[in-house]
Nucleic acid binder design. Sequence first.
DNA 1: AGTCTGCGAAATGATGTGTC
DNA 2: GACACATCATTTCGCAGACT
Length: 478
Amino acid sequence: MSGIASWVTAKDLRHRLDADFYRPEYLEFDHRAEARGLKMRQVVEISSLVTDGTHKTPSYVDSGVPFLSAKNIRNGFVDAGSGHKYVSAAEFDQLERWNCAPRPDDVLVAKSGSIGSAGLASGAYDRFAVFESAAIIRPSGVSPAYLSAYLNSRLGQLQIRRNSKGAVIRHLHLEDLREVEVPLPDRRIQDYIGAKVELAERCRAVASREREKLGTELATLYEGCPHAALSSLTTMVAPAEIDGSRLDAWYHQRRFITLTEWLRRNPAFVKLGKVASLSSDRWSPGAHGQSTFRYIEISDVDSSTGHVSHSEVPVENAPSRARKLLRGFDVLASTVRPNRGAVGLVPDSLDGAVATTGFAVVRAVSKTDAFFLLAVLRHPASTAQLMRCNTGSAYPAIEESVLPQIWIPGAKPGTRKSLGARELRRTTLLQTAVDLVDQAKADVEALIEGTLDAQAILAETLKPPTADDIPELAEDDA
DNA sequence: AGTCTGCGAAATGATGTGTC
DNA sequence: GACACATCATTTCGCAGACT
């Protein structure tokens, strides 16, 4: 960001007259695209429909047709995995008539919340409806996957920010989205960039199938486990059921007692502490002579995928909680707000990174075992056990020492290995998908910079990656 | 006059951080 | 370790003008 004042010449002037619209970085973008000889088209010119989801809050139902909102558009994907609501079939029909049901080739853009995030509708479901917080673009004359990559790129985000309004809470309005300018290269270049996004979608589809299989396999291990039972907070407790450590109603809810008893009596279950240990490796700022460090906080763990990311933080700005030194393949479980179920696995690339003290760091004996633990700790039976040990209602948290005490399936080595391998494959595919979208975004930026080898793409000497380049996809069983 | 759409903003929800 | 609080993100609501 540079100075507030910006010199605007007549040829830069468009329909808007506010200073913000003409900030130097925006003008620079205009000039650069022009220098590349790129055609610029407004979103409205390259789509047959630009609308948004329903404004009328539907009456939600427990199951039916999926109903997604802005929070489902993240990291370049329309992601159903982070949870969503449902509407009845009848309500869906009405929504479809109102153009609130995206088609597979549509591009969705977040209008509220993390505005400007985009993704392909096909990434979620074939049939679903969206809320007002998501915009629907039906591309025409542009590759949908390319459009999605562009909107997610730094440049697309810049354009969206440029067109969004609102002093305090910025929102993206439809009329502004329609005016967002899109560089339109040769169709073959669009397809080259779009192919990466499409391949990423394919990885995600296979990953989600893996998750289903994993779910089935885990269900076998947890067969008969009463983890989903509900009970009221009022419980009659027999004296023998009070373990002395706590006397509160929360801990003694019938469903918790039933679950723990069931697990304790079942010889197929062992305590986590039997198969893994808590790490107490510490880190302190300044002790390692670096100027920055890789910091992992709770929000860096994606609770729907188990993926762990990080941010680079200068050592002098280290939060007081940055204390836990990590190794590759450590399993992180959040001890604050355990209901969120933030459990993730530290990729090998983050060996030596630092986590907040809000995590318990579980260290398994092997790599596949770590993935097995990841799968098991994400299971509702584990979350319920952690929730039982919750203290504090305003600030729910558990103690780290609870983790080794929870019961997990003491599966045979072979089973653990195959489950772990499946979880590994799922995680790898999801990461590959993210990498591919990042590549596509980088390509768009290179296109504007003029560093993209357009000649090679047109001559087809430079080809986009295909499914054959991703070993995890090759194993995809028929 | 009734309905739909675009827009703004309050209400609600989530979550990281400093501090004791 | 617990807490209050700040700071967002997201949902929901309702007004106003356009459209039918």
